[in-house]
Design a protein around this nucleic acid. Structure first.
Lengths: 198, 198
DNA sequence: GTCTATATTGCGATAGAC
DNA sequence: GTCTATCGCAATATAGAC
C-alpha cells in the first residue's frame, strides 16, 4: 500500500507524456491524474526530469526482447519480422508506448542521449547484420546499400506509430480502421518482396 | 533595410524551431540569434505562437509543389516518386526543413491542426489515388490495402528526415554518409519492386 | 509519507522612452 | 522601429508542519 503512490505516479506520467510530450505536461497534471500530491514527485523521483527518465527507460526496455542474443541466429527475414513484431507488441500493450519509443528515436531528450544512442546502436547493428547476411546468402539483392535499407525498414515500422494520431483520422469515409497486425504483415510483405533477389 | 529585422527573426526562428521544437525555444533565444530585440517578435508577429505559425506555413508551402493539379495526371509510380522528390527538395533547400514538416505530421501544433490536416489530407488523397490507379492498371498487386500502402510510402520517405540526427551518427565506422538522393532512389526501387504485380 | 505554503526561476508580453 | 524595464503568470522544487 505504501508504494502505491509511486506506481500510480509512474503510470499517470507515462500516459500523459506519451500523449502530449514532456514539455506540455506539468507535474501538477501528473499528480492530479494519479490522485496524489505534486510534491510526491520530488519525493519519489527527485525531479520531473528524473521521473521522465524512468518512464522512458521502462518503455524502451520493451526493445530488449529484440536484443536477445538468440535473435542473431534467426534467418535474416525473421530478424526483420521480429523487429516489427516487437514494436507491435510494445504498442499493443499500451497504445501510447510505441509512440514514445519512436519519439525518443526522433528527438532524444538531452539527459537520455547516452541511453537512447546505446539502445539504438544495438538495434541498428542487428538489423544491419541481418541485411548483410541476407545479401551474402543470396536472398537479398546485391545492390542494397545496407544503412539505407535498415533505415527504410525502421521507417516503415516506426512511422506508423509516430503518425498514429494522424492516419487514424485520415480517410474516415472508408469503413474500418487499419489493424496493426495487418499493417505490419503488409509492410513485411512489401519490404521483403522489394529487397529480394530475383 | 527596414524589413531586415523581420526577415532575420523569421530565419532564426526557423532554424531554432526546426532543431529543438516549439517549447524548447524562447523568444529571447530567437531574438539573440537574429541579433534583434525580443520585443520585436511581438511587434512584427504579434506573439511567439503567430511567429511559429508563420514559420510552419512557409515550410509546409514546399508541399504545394506536390499538390499541383498536373500531378494527378502522372503515372502512379511517377506520383510516388514525385512525393519523395518534393520532400527531398524541401530538405535540400535547408537541412532542417523536412524535419519540420515531418514533425508537424507527427504532432501538429494545436493552433495549426486545421491547416496541417487540410494539407495532409490532400497529400494523402493523391497518394491513395495513385495506388488505387496502379492497382486498377494492373501495375501493382491486387491485395494491397490502400491506406496502409500510402502510410508505408510516407514512412519510408519521412522517417529518413525525422531521424536524420540519429542515423547520421550511427555506423560511423563505415566510410561516408548516406546521400539523400541515393536514399530516395533506393527507397523507390525497393517500394516499387515490393508492390509491383508479378 | 503526505500535505500546504512558498521560494525561485524563466517565460511571453507590453508600456513607454527614444 | 527599436530599446529598456517590468508585469504577470505558470512551472518546478522545497521547507516545514503534521
Amino acid at each position: 500500500m505504501e508504494q502505491e503512490n509511486k506506481e500510480r505516479l509512474l503510470k499517470a506520467a507515462t500516459g500523459l507524456f506519451a500523449e502530449a510530450g514532456y514539455d506540455k505536461v506539468s507535474i501538477r497534471q501528473i499528480a492530479d491524474k494519479a490522485g496524489a500530491n505534486s510534491a510526491m514527485i520530488s519525493y519519489y523521483f527527485g525531479s520531473k526530469e528524473k521521473l521522465y527518465r524512468e518512464v522512458v527507460m521502462e518503455q524502451v526496455r520493451g526493445l530488449d526482447h529484440f536484443l536477445r542474443p538468440a535473435i542473431r541466429k534467426l534467418a535474416p527475414e525473421k530478424i526483420l519480422e521480429c523487429y516489427a513484431l516487437t514494436l507491435q507488441a510494445i504498442h499493443a500493450e499500451h497504445p501510447a508506448m510505441a509512440k514514445f519509443v519512436s519519439r525518443e528515436i526522433v528527438q532524444p531528450s538531452p539527459s537520455m542521449k547516452w541511453f537512447i544512442r546505446e539502445k539504438l546502436q544495438a538495434v541498428y547493428e542487428i538489423l544491419a547484420e541481418a541485411i548483410a547476411c541476407g545479401i551474402a546468402q543470396g536472398k537479398f539483392r546485391e545492390d542494397l546499400e545496407i544503412r539505407s535499407t535498415v533505415i527504410l525498414w525502421a521507417g516503415m515500422v516506426n512511422f506508423y506509430y509516430l503518425a498514429y494520431n494522424i492516419h487514424s483520422k485520415l480517410d474516415e469515409v472508408s469503413a474500418g480502421k487499419i489493424v496493426d497486425k495487418d499493417y505490419i504483415a503488409q509492410a513485411l510483405r512489401i519490404f521483403l518482396a522489394g529487397i529480394e533477389r530475383r
